[in-house]
Amino acid sequence: MKYIRKYLKMNFADILLTLTLVLCGFASLIIFYKTSRTGTSLVIRQNGVITATYPLNEDAMINISDAGNVITIKNGAATMTEADCPDLICVRHKSIKRTGETIVCLPHQLSLSVEGGVSVDDDKIDAIVR
């Protein structure tokens, strides 16, 4: 243990740097969580250009033939169910339903993102009005 600890020595500057980065991480996490809402539509982009938009409240199977990807919308959440890229990172990605959440398939320059939606605060106002 003593032997290992010798190589784990960090000085003040290191700890300051790490703490700053951790704080940045938590701050952005909180900001993103506060600003995200349950989305209403799925936007599909290929090479940075929006090619299609689908509503999230209807179940659907979307086949993108020129990229070989299949997208499934179920219960208001979207997932990439099939892809012919080598790493399959997009297929292993968890389903997305909140605004800003994105699935990217880098080899095919394809990105799915959830957009639009009622903010949590709006929901509350509605509830009070009702």
Binding site: L21, C24, G48, G100, T102, V104
Partner: peptide, 27 residues
């Protein structure tokens, strides 16, 4: 780079995860 090429600003949502993983792996 991915944000520039894919023109998808939503990718910034990955930032917290990548920050933490970078810190742990860098350590």
């Amino acid at each position: 780079c991915a944000m520039l090429i894919l023109e998808t600003n939503e990718l910034i949502y990955y930032l917290p995860v990548l920050l933490f993983s970078g810190i742990i792996c860098g350590f």
